[in-house]
Design a protein around this nucleic acid. Structure first.
Lengths: 203, 203
DNA sequence: GGCGTTGGTTAACGGTGTTAATTATTAAGT
DNA sequence: ACTTAATAATTAACACCGTTAACCAACGCC
């Protein structure tokens, strides 16, 4: 009925979903609302997505791909391992702050949505871990870090960051605390916790 | 129809809810299922709870109270600040591992449920932070820790722990990694990340 | 013309939270 | 013992949800 017959309905659905999901959360997110927002019948969503889950997972995958790209960019920069880890942390934080809708969709997901996330796409989820693991291994090789199991450390690193941003974005942060200061100190703590020998001796 | 007419229906509802919620997640949790499980009509739930949210929040509050109690116990023990922080961390982890159902209900909650959590009950949520903050302040006073803003550090501490357990319990942990080893190392990192003075010099 | 393919529709099914009206059961008062 | 009030539970209904099936309209192609 519009000028063009199908001016990227799929994209329209994704945009409306992104907005609705971040605004009203998973609980109040419904296909029928999405359909209403884009001015189309509810069942039309099924022309582009197999299910509500498929739609949500598409949204998640978008963000994962974007974030992975950003991390990869940082990863190939010629940086000292410690600075690289720091840069990775800030890149992650930047994504969360710059695209809160997208990040929230990811981090609001909770166990439920994650459990239903298709297994064959978990490769991408792991990609972030791989990048961090490589940076840590590099640090270990150069004698800057004393981590016996870089893979575990990578998980710890990621988990801590996730926890930090989870607190920041869910209003659980005491409002007497400045957000940026909190983030800076948190990242500082996380990096400092990685047994950085030279940093201590050099200071 | 049973022997006793109402043998703690409220408690039965809570038990069934705990189970269902942890097993099927928030997504597939429904009052009607709960009602069916306890063998009662769906609307009977409303005799004891104002809404689905109220039921869920009651469950959350239970766990928060329990955990706060455990943390308080640790807190009044006569321990050196560093050991106290470590003990608090392990208490938190123990709760998560010993009562995974309850912990999952809390940590699966995500932003949505948390946003709807009644404001006047957030005092209790903060209690955990207060306990950690006190421990850190004690460490600072005794010259054991070098933290300029204990409150921020407390939030960091908590956030990191949350992140770690979030990874552990949501199967996002690579299965080549031993769970306990991961947890130990993570806590080690977290504590070590707190600029610990004597620990470095004494070692 | 006829034909299938694409992009969309409406109708319907079983399930959901929640409310209103209704019935059974218990406790109290006199 | 009989009435009254409160309590505990029920059934019926509403509006919404994800999903499926059946249908319809426009287009390209022969």
């Amino acid at each position: 009925m519009d000028s063009k017959r199908n001016s990227g309905l799929k994209e329209q659905i994704l945009n409306a979903s992104r907005l609705l999901l971040s605004q009203e959360g998973y609980r109040n997110f419904s296909l029928r609302k999405v359909a209403r927002d884009v001015g189309v019948s509810a069942t039309s969503v099924y022309l582009h997505f197999d299910s509500k889950d498929h739609l949500i997972h598409t949204l998640m995958e978008e963000s994962i791909d974007y974030l992975n790209g950003k991390l990869e960019e940082v990863s190939i920069r010629q940086l000292e391992p410690i600075q690289k880890l720091q840069a990775l942390a800030y890149e992650y934080v930047s994504f969360a702050l710059q695209y809160p809708k997208e990040y929230q969709i990811l981090y609001m997901a909770g166990t439920g949505e994650m459990a239903r996330y298709p297994k064959d796409k978990f490769r991408k989820v792991r990609q972030g871990y791989e990048i961090v693991t490589r940076a840590i291994e590099e640090g270990v090789d150069r004698g800057l870090l004393d981590e016996t199991q870089p893979r575990i450390t990578a998980y710890t690193f990621w988990a801590q960051l996730h926890g930090v941003m989870s607190v920041v974005l869910s209003r659980r942060l005491d409002n007497r605390i400045d957000r940026n200061e909190f983030i800076e100190q948190a990242i500082d703590h996380i990096i400092y916790g990685f047994h950085v020998r030279t940093a201590i001796e050099a200071d």
